[in-house]
Design a binder for these strands. Structure first.
Length: 450
RNA sequence: GCUGUGGUGGUGUAGGGGUUAGCACGGCAGAUUGUGGUUCUGCCAGCCCGGGUUCAAUUCCCGGCCACGGCCCCA
């Protein structure tokens, strides 16, 4: 292409989506939307850019290095949004304070992160998510998680693993044995202990316990707790371990069990369910149940969904609505997984319903003034038929080839003779069968349905 | 943040210090001036960018850009 040297390339880490790909993406989006709708969630939308403060308030100043941040002409500090939870929280505080609670909100859109991209990680990526705001407890969490399960199931995703945990279990165990949650120097002892458990650094934990004058006898059961992994039976094992530690509350564990029981009724069983008390999601605003979905086929970037109960609305003066529960679904990653699985099974359809089954009619004006058929085209389109007009004045044979190539189900040639007689033939391209019609939309409509 | 591999028409590829840079798919047109998917013919269209070595670089070297991976990290 001679013009290449003058072309401007797509920025690094971004993607274009052609017609075929968009068909899949739109089908996937409406599938997710339909599930959200059935669970009572309503779609909202927030701006592509926000005040920088919104994200530093949520995640600390460190996030700035990963943001597409800039100043506008009024020298306001803005950034392209790196995620959608904080904007939705902002919107709730700003616009939806007086709506009847609880709110069930869903959203979908681009997010931007300035980082090295690779398979499943892009600088511009798409996130679908939901937040349930203004209600708390095991049933709320179960509703949200069940929606996630139903979405992935309906999308036809296979071989995925739901990992579920509850940050309260270990936290209550640690406070129960006497670790403090208040700051002395820098990090509260409780947070340090959580970190050590997360990284399986039991020597670090021992040092901390000695410093805090806490019996190191607790380390063994804590280690066992953090290493628990398995199905629902894991709850019973955790209960036994916690029972050996005096003064430790079982409330979080009871909640988790209750959540799991409700999920089992609200959604089909996921292909794999694993209870893991160290699914901490690395973030300190999570307060209750936390969960992630992984797809092994995706390798390093295998997490396709993550969420839980968190406290963020207090940042906006709405502490009474905390905690909320929600999740974000990596739209691109789920699609990648679906594509990989479809390819492995040599399946054509990647997303259920991606292939539009409505007839597409190629209207081929032949040696006539095309204005003769425009009224008919309009009537057909009003009746819900997809109509494409041949625009290059091809000869009949070529026009048929064109119609077939672009995926038309039927073709209708209208030439001088047809106009004269008020009749024509609708040709079904799949098998070549022809149907005589009169040149009015009702007759053509019934031929298309034949 | 660390690191591996690679870049030839729109797509997939062959080749290789001096070539009319080959092939397939594709698009367009004709064979075929009222009915497609076959066939035949013609046309369209390419060596990522910059510097170096050389008489000569698309080919070798260096840098950049882009692409695809593996770690780390992740709101």
């Amino acid at each position: 292409m001679a013009l290449r040297r003058f072309m401007v390339q797509r920025p690094r880490g971004t993607r274009d989506f052609g017609p075929m790909e968009m068909k899949r993406r739109l089908a996937f989006e409406s599938l997710l939307e339909e599930q959200a709708r059935r669970h009572g969630f309503s779609r909202v939308q927030t701006p592509i850019f926000e005040s920088l403060d919104l994200f530093t308030a949520k995640s600390g100043p460190g996030v700035v290095s990963q943001l597409y941040a800039f100043q506008d002409k009024g020298e306001r500090h803005l950034t392209l949004r790196p995620e959608l939870t904080a904007p939705v929280m902002r919107m709730v505080a700003e616009e939806l304070r007086n709506e009847t609670k609880p709110l069930r909100l869903s959203y979908f859109g681009q997010c931007f992160r300035y980082e090295e991209f690779k398979k499943g990680r892009y600088r511009e990526f798409y996130q679908y998510g939901v937040e349930l705001i203004g209600a708390t407890g095991p049933l709320v969490e179960a509703e949200v998680i069940a929606l996630a399960i139903n979405m992935l199931t309906e999308a036809g995703l296979k071989n995925w693993e739901l990992r579920i945990g509850h940050v309260g279990v270990l936290k209550q165990a640690l406070t129960g044995i006497g670790l403090s949650d208040t700051i002395e120097h820098g990090e509260p002892p409780l947070a340090s202990a959580m970190r050590f458990l997360d990284k399986a650094d039991f020597e670090g934990l021992r040092v901390l316990f000695e410093k805090q004058a806490i019996s190191t006898d607790f380390i063994a059961p804590l280690q066992q707790l953090s290493e628990l992994k398995g199905g629902q039976e894991t709850i019973a094992s955790a209960r036994e371990l916690l029972a050996t530690m005096e003064g430790v509350s079982l409330e979080a564990l009871d909640d988790l069990e209750s959540t799991l029981n409700s999920i089992a009724q609200l959604a089909p069983a996921p292909p794999s369910l694993s209870v893991n008390l160290t699914v901490a999601r690395g973030l300190d605003y999570y307060t209750g149940t936390v969960f992630e979905v992984h797809v092994p086929e995706l390798g390093g970037e295998g997490q396709v969904l993550g969420g839980g109960s968190y406290k963020l609305l207090h940042l906006f003066g709405l502490a009474d609505l905390d905690p909320c529960c929600g999740f974000g679904l990596g739209f691109d990653r789920v699609l990648l997984a679906l594509e990989a699985q479809a390819a492995a099974e040599q399946r054509d359809e990647v997303v259920p319903g991606q292939n539009d089954e409505t007839p597409l009619l190629a209207m081929i004006p032949f040696n006539i003034n095309s204005s003769e058929i425009l009224g008919l085209v309009r009537q057909l389109r009003s009746s819900g038929v997809c109509v494409e007009i041949e625009l290059r004045s091809r000869k009949i044979g070529k026009a048929m080839g064109w119609a077939d190539n672009i995926g038309c189900s039927h073709a209708l040639v209208v030439g001088p003779r047809d106009l004269e007689q008020g009749q024509a033939t609708v040709k079904r391209l799949s098998d070549g069968e022809q149907f005589p019609v009169t040149l009015d939309f009702e007759s053509i409509l019934s031929a298309l349905k034949a």
